[in-house]
Nucleic acid binder design. Sequence first.
DNA 1: TTGAGGTTTCCTGTTT
DNA 2: TAAACAGGAAACCTCA
Length: 553
Amino acid sequence: MISDNPTSFVDVNTFTNHIMRRELMLTLENMSPKLAAPAPAPPSLSFGAAGSPFDSSALNALLPGLATRSAFSVVCGAGGNVLPGVTTASNFFDVGSPPATISTAASPFAPLLFPNIGSPQSIPPTPVLQSTALPVVTSSALVNAVQALTAGSPQAPVLFNQLIQFPQTDNRLDLVGWRVREPVDWTMDDVVGWMLETSKRLGIPCEDINMSKFATLSGAELLKMNENDFTDCDPSYGKLFYREMARFLNVTIPEDNILDDVLRKYKDLEESKPTIDTNAIFQQQIQRQQEMNNLFAAQQQLTQTLANNIRAQSIAQFTNNLCAALNPTGLNLNNLAASPLLANTLQRRNSISSDYLPCFQQGPSTSGGYDSESEIKGVFKNRPLDGKIRKRSQHAKGNKLWEFIRDALKDPSTCPSVVRWEDPNEGVFRIVESEKLARLWGERKNNTKMTYEKLSRAMRTYYDKQILVPVPKTGLYPKKLVYNLIWISIVLAPNLDPMILLQHKDFAAGEWPQTGVQIWAKRTRMEQWWSVRFVLMVRPIGWNWLGRRRRTR
DNA sequence: TTGAGGTTTCCTGTTT
DNA sequence: TAAACAGGAAACCTCA
């Protein structure tokens, strides 16, 4: 079984030690012959004095090569916090803390990680990096996001308000709207949402999908595409997505055992990696890359054969019919027989009844595995055979204590009557009715014996994890029952504008697990000011966010 | 089956 | 004096 569901808040030590380090090791091992050559003296970049506004231009200079970067981290603000386990100045910059200078001279690895500073031309992309084939994050948007979240920026309070309070704006990215819309009506967001959900359901690592090619398509454009077009967009999984779309639309497509073999072999390779030996992992990746190349060649051949033998006639007509169908003045369903995806969806659209939308919203579907609605609604799974009613999962999504508190702070029925913000910009909140909050928490966990004493004990376990911190009863907040919720996890999807994603309702919860790039933000309230830490990294294939190799069975 | 994560429960002692 | 706070220890439950 492949586990891809990360904890929303990742421990920084685990994160750094296990993932970034391993990623660096894999990269550097592969680059070792190049390291023997004398590296040119890299320049130093100044990011300004402690407490000064963040100078995005220097960061911007680092970002254009992000697509092939193996690891990149920036610490903004002050405080001088150093990520444990990261010892070279090359992959860790402490911005705003003395000495307020970034120097790549401290490590020979720096030119590899930051070729824009070093000598990019002399270092070709490694097979490891090629195999990950990461999409590009818009650097200007990323810089804007970083800048906006940085102390000293006038945008910071506004943005943090959005993150914490989740205002009902129309600009939020809707990743579940595809469930209740006809595919022909899907927006680009819907397409992305469907792909993310599908990849999650199939256990495909999201970062392996060439999302950028699909992320700019509307549903109508997607339906216009044939199998080859899907494959062109993503040679690895395009065909699979085409079939998933066909399945979603209840369109029958000839079975293709070779594709199953491709996927099976891919998963076998993915799951057969060694657990400890880094070098062996690297060799496995190289081997896997070769195997995948062979498999993809076979897949391409198959696709071509199918196109020639089965769809030669229908492809052209499919496109023509679709173009006609998309023309609002010339829709003719009778001509769509050769356009399986579109014909089906248009017929479905044509026959939408008053109870059609609810059929998407109710319980498991029987028509193709799109049953995660029940998961989203938190339906209990794995009810025991012995008939005993067990407590609700402590690990169910949205069922963690901090999520409960966060939700309570968002819910007008509990905020401000039960909990209320003291300072949303700083994440400081106050429990107004402790026993009522405990009762609500108990209801959420099916635990009638919950008390505030127990609830507060659970909250104190967050101190170590830096999710909550106690607020001193002197100074700004002399009252009791005041806590500081200090962690915000922000996930960026490939090729999507971070500024849009930052407004997404799920981001403060970090509930978007399968993305290739992650911005991970920690706000730490310190004496009189706070710092923001961003760690931007690329997850190595075969590893989850916690630095564990994916489980195999 | 096992270990990890996230509580839950109980407890003692301290502070407000 | 009650309520809140702090934290140790062990049990519990679920997931991977």
